[in-house]
Write a protein that binds this DNA or RNA. Structure first.
Lengths: 149, 149
DNA sequence: CATAACTGAGTTGTGCACAACTTAATTTCG
DNA sequence: CGAAATTAAGTTGTGCACAACTCAGTTATG
């Protein structure tokens, strides 16, 4: 198995990563539906629950997403009245994103999610930690590689 | 670090997975641009290079994608003249997808990709194998969990 | 201090993902 | 057989992702 005369789908780490990521998102979906959130919206709220009042750029750095993805996403969160957006007075280019009361309150409902999803992954705590660390190294390595084209 | 009084973004395996998957796709992007392909299109061709003449359903099972994603994707690959689509005569509901000459020829250009991407990941062969296996188990476990809601 | 360079956010356009739905073909069963 | 259930593929609508772009505000420089 492995290299026959070209790349094989199931041998690819990249495909395993792609499939795993989508499976986990799909697991979150019905749970997040109850909170009225999509998965990326949940990630934005996670960042804000951890530290409120971030700029759009801060959020982009945290989630590794650009403004083209985040701006419309924040617009939808604002329409849901989960976040507020306001231009910073000391730098009018910058927009501060803050939780509303509703956005803050949603945190309590989200507390059980990570445990539930962790269980579904079928790995114990140590394995999850190791996997997370491996994935972080991989991401950093790949992004460094991309920098130098 | 870890559990303070709610989920924390960087502790989440799910986020590490999401970030890693996007980083790897982003690494593929400029390489696949040279072949005129997107990453999901590349995955479809990988499946067809491995075994030509698959139905739309077969492809969906292989990539774990539904017809709503694959149908328009195949339409684009057909417009690029990389695949042909034809109804099966023995079951007119079914559509057989086959490589064109151009689609088959593209395989040669794709051969170096997995090696390159593997290097960029900064893990040795054994680590990559282990990661792939862990991800496959995780995916299977998560999907089994989803089945029983 | 003027203007060139840069920065932060947002817009536009393309291509996934996926839920929900439609349509046509096939299979199952009363 | 013939109606009901099932299956395969495709369509529609929403929300990411991301490249390429615009525009306003800020900083740097001659």
């Amino acid at each position: 198995m492995g290299r026959q005369d070209g790349p094989v789908l199931d041998d690819q780490v990249c495909f395993a990563l792609y499939a795993a990521s989508r499976a986990v998102t799909a697991l979150y979906r019905p749970l997040l539906d109850d909170l009225g959130l999509t998965y990326p919206q949940y990630l934005v709220l996670l960042a804000l629950w951890e530290r409120d009042e971030l700029t759009v750029t801060d959020l982009g750095r945290s989630l590794q997403l650009d403004s083209g993805t985040i701006s419309p996403l924040l617009k939808r969160l604002e329409k849901l009245e989960l976040v507020r957006r306001e231009r910073r007075s000391d730098d009018e280019r910058s927009v501060r994103v803050a939780l509303t009361e509703r956005g803050d309150a949603l945190r309590a409902k989200a507390v059980p999610l990570p445990g539930l999803v962790g269980d579904a992954m079928g790995l114990d705590g140590a394995e999850l930690d190791e996997l997370r660390d491996t994935l972080r190294e991989l991401t950093e390595s790949v992004n460094a590689y991309r920098e130098r084209l």
